[in-house]
Nucleic acid binder design. Structure first.
Length: 811
DNA sequence: CTCAAACGGGG
DNA sequence: GGGTACGTTTGAG
């Protein structure tokens, strides 16, 4: 008997019909547990009105069915609920995962068969759902153990879940590569590794005076040595930041070019790329490749205040430390001249260092998500909100004998996407000007609270007689049954209940303990899942799709926030801006904010609750004209001078530096100096300077990437024209190249006048004023009541903009 | 107005 | 390894 901590899951062995669990034993040794007993299955639904005799005949026929010499290993009748309706099903169990495809495709064509269910659930994930085995928890394994080879292999006879909460020692190693362009090739020049047991190293084939640098012969040697080091350090988890789309993509491509195998795993298998939606994920057998960027992009992005998800800004926010900037061409030049490479080496190490540090914070969060949705680390760390909810619901349906609805077919997804968008959250239009003393309030888990309070579920929708007690959706004819608990609200209720228990338990713990941190991550994961459930109803790829449920939830949401705004205004507070579940209100003090909160909460039913989030010295709110789901676009400064900027997305490289810089300066003038005049004058001066030709041409450069071979472009955009010119002048241009160009003076379309940055001698003031600086500035200035002509007219601002500064009014 | 193409992260 | 599709914004035509 072995106590074993599961880290990840895969299917392998003959015909991929064995489930393999990678992890560590309680002695701290890496081990592989093989469970060869679980068999794949799927369901067919008998056609409507089938007689008992016909059904028996159908079952007999399936039992006798033999395809390529394979027969079912089990055929039985089952009953399951689907959206509240009982379904008569035949469960067909087969020897190997691949048999499921053969059998379902044959049987679904038969006359007495209506349709198939649960036929496309990946085998090892199905295993986790059905056995209830949970990754990143301890289990007790009974079975035969063989210890030849580098790690123990246990063929399991019985696996029992344990309640233990302790963490085993897990080896974690972070890696990062640096790349330069040479001709139309991209070469790996450096790689850093750092692990959680004090090991660190940078590999390169040019000298630099850094003690942890190890010299290798060439790029090929670098990849081979990396492989040796990783296998020697034997990590359970390899951490990267964007490794799926960058580091492993390049490592694998270069290894391929040199004709060497790229093996980092515990077996001889090369790193593989597994398709996950639109991108590939780099997979390594026996270890988990944890690409933190996925988790940051999919899950964390909502809670981060930073607009950019770069390793630097994410680390700054989460860890309080970032990295020294190193411009792209600086690295390129340092490598070409073999000078100043120390900086590059250190930069490379910093990336691994930050990734490793981030994993210390994020891995515990991801771990808790794994435990709730019950799927492996590799998969869970790459899931979007909707996928997390889906896997949770799939696991939950097994427990309650719900049938898992089929995934929508591609055409169905298209139809769902094309459906007219429905009304989302209520937006209280932002009042212009710079506001002072603002309190931010928001509803605690608004949409989950509504879902639970009003039993919003596909099968409770308009269910039962109109005379039964029901929840009526404000402003519509829809209602939800009060007597039958819905599957999804019930699932949410469990999450909320568990979260409540954990939070209560946390009150008895000291905040600076490991136990407390685990509990905090757990309650946060539960919150994430609960909050994602609304989006899942409206997500086109959803198995439990229900537009009406999603619409009902937002309808109630609008109802409640409007109710709160009315109440606040009645009490003579000024609401400055409101969006979906949050509102900004001018207050006199913290106490004043508390008074409003208390009064409002007395009027809210059930689990609905408004929360106070913070007090800000000043802020600016900008109406977002585009889209139905209004984007939050605002900038705030708190008492400590800390600045929060949301939704001003002009930090993109396809905007010129002059536009980005100007917008930033304007925002700072607004928040720090609370001076609309200063803000406006920054814009005016910039415009004047551009018109005079006084601005450095470097600030006019726009960077756009070629995403395909030049010939394949149908739309000839500015960067395509610039690339063609560069090519004619004998410079190498390839797919993927970054094209830097300037729009120059002259005649013709904007595209015609795009010049490669190196050749550009002048810039078109008209273009940079009207298409770059003006739109970027107006995003902010419009909220101060400025018009475009104010920016374009010459001279300093004459009139006073003071009226746009609003202080908290006296009551 | 519609449609195609780019953004993100990484270097 | 059995299903494969991000959400949003900008510019050209």
């Amino acid at each position: 008997m072995v106590r074993f901590f599961i880290i990840d899951v895969q299917q392998s062995g003959p015909d991929k019909s064995e489930v393999m669990l990678w992890g560590r034993t309680e002695k701290g040794e890496p081990a592989l547990v093989i469970d060869p007993t679980f068999r794949p299955y799927f369901f067919v639904e008998c056609k409507d009105g089938i007689s008992k005799r016909e059904a028996d005949e159908l079952m007999g026929k399936i039992t006798e069915l033999s395809l390529d010499g394979v027969k079912p290993v089990g055929v039985e009748f089952k009953e399951r609920k689907l959206f509240g309706k009982e379904k008569k099903l035949i469960k067909i169990t087969l020897p190997k995962p691949a048999d499921v495809i053969k059998f379902r495709d044959t049987v679904k064509e038969w006359n007495d068969v209506k349709t198939k269910y649960e036929h496309s659930i990946t085998f090892y994930r199905r295993y986790l759902i059905d056995t209830g085995i949970t990754p990143l928890t301890w289990v007790e394994v009974e079975g035969r153990e063989s210890t030849e080879g580098p790690y123990a292999v246990i063929e399991a006879e019985k696996i029992t879940a344990l309640e233990d909460e302790d963490y085993p020692k897990i080896n974690i190693l972070a890696l990062d590569i640096e790349l330069v362009e040479e001709g139309d090739e991209e070469k790996i020049i450096m790689v850093s590794v750092k692990d959680n047991r004090g090991f660190r190293k940078v590999l390169s084939y040019k000298k630099a005076n850094v003690d942890y640098l190890e010299l290798v012969k060439d790029e090929k040697g670098l990849i081979q040595r990396l492989s040796e080091i990783v296998r020697g350090r034997d990590p359970d988890i390899i951490v990267t930041y964007n490794g799926d789309r960058f580091d492993f993509k390049h490592l694998s491509a270069r290894a391929n070019k040199f004709g060497i195998k790229f093996v980092l795993g515990r077996t001889a298998k090369e790193a593989l790329f597994k398709r996950r939606g639109r991108v590939y994920a780099a997979w390594i057998e026996g270890r988990v490749h944890l690409d933190l960027f996925n988790f940051v992009e999919n899950i964390l992005t909502d809670t981060l205040s930073s607009d950019s998800l770069s390793l630097d800004s994410v680390s700054r926010e989460i860890l309080g430390k970032g990295k020294k900037r190193l411009e792209w061409d600086e690295m390129q030049k340092a490598w070409e001249n073999s000078k100043g490479l120390e900086r590059v080496v250190k930069y490379c190490m910093t990336d691994s260092d930050l990734a490793l540090s981030l994993s210390k914070v994020l891995l515990p969060q991801i771990t808790e998500l794994c435990r709730i949705v019950g799927q492996g680390l590799f998969d869970t760390s790459r899931m979007t909100y909707s996928q997390l909810v889906e896997w949770l619901l799939m696991r939950e349906s097994r427990k309650t004998d719900e049938l898992i609805p089929n995934r929508p077919k591609f055409e169905e997804i298209q139809i769902r996407r094309k459906a007219a968008p429905y009304t989302g959250g209520y937006v209280y239009p932002p009042k212009g000007g710079i506001h002072q003393n603002i309190a931010l309030f928001d509803f605690m888990s608004l949409y989950p609270s509504i879902t639970i309070t009003h039993n919003v579920s596909p099968e409770t929708l308009n269910c039962g007689s109109d005379k039964d007690p029901v929840h009526r959706v404000p402003g519509t004819d829809h209602y939800y049954c009060k007597t039958h608990p819905g599957f999804i609200p019930e699932t949410l209720k469990k999450l909320v209940k568990k979260r409540r228990e954990i939070k209560d338990g946390m009150d008895k713990l000291k905040p600076d303990t490991d136990k407390y941190r685990v509990m905090d991550n757990r309650q946060h994961a539960l919150k994430i899942l609960a909050n994602a459930s609304y989006g899942y109803y409206g997500y086109a790829g959803s198995r439990w799709y229900s537009r009406v449920c999603a619409q009902s939830i937002t309808a109630w949401g609008r109802y409640y926030i409007q109710k709160v705004i009315r109440k606040a205004e009645k009490m003579d507070y000024e609401v400055v801006y409101g969006d979906t579940d949050s509102l900004f209100v001018r207050v006199r003090s913290r106490k004043d904010a508390g008074h409003l909160l208390e009064t409002v909460n007395k009027t809210l039913p059930g689990v609905m609750e408004l929360e106070f989030q913070g007090l800000y010295k000043a802020g600016i709110f900008v109406p977002a004209k585009t889209g139905l789901a209004a984007k939050k676009r605002y900038a705030l400064i708190d008492d400590d001078g800390e600045i929060t900027i949301r939704g001003f997305e002009i930090v993109r490289r396809d905007w010129s530096l002059i536009a980005r810089e100007t917008q930033e300066k304007i925002l700072l003038a607004v928040l720090r100096d609370r001076s609309p005049e200063k803000a406006l004058n920054i814009a005016k001066k910039t415009v004047q300077r551009i018109k005079k030709g006084d601005t450095s041409i470097d600030k006019m450069i726009i960077h756009t990437q070629l995403t395909r071979p030049l010939k394949e472009y149908e739309q000839i955009g500015p960067h395509v024209v610039a690339a063609k010119k560069a090519l004619q002048r004998g410079r190498p241009i390839a797919e993927g190249s970054m094209i830097s160009y300037v729009i120059s003076k002259g005649t013709g379309t904007i595209s015609d006048r795009a010049e490669p940055a190196e050749d550009a001698e002048n810039y078109d003031p008209e273009y940079y004023v009207n298409n770059q600086v003006l739109p970027a500035s107006m995003r902010v200035l419009a909220a101060l009541g400025c018009k475009e002509v104010d920016v374009l007219s010459e001279g300093e601002v004459q009139y006073s903009l003071k009226t746009f500064i609003k202080k908290g009014k006296k009551r």
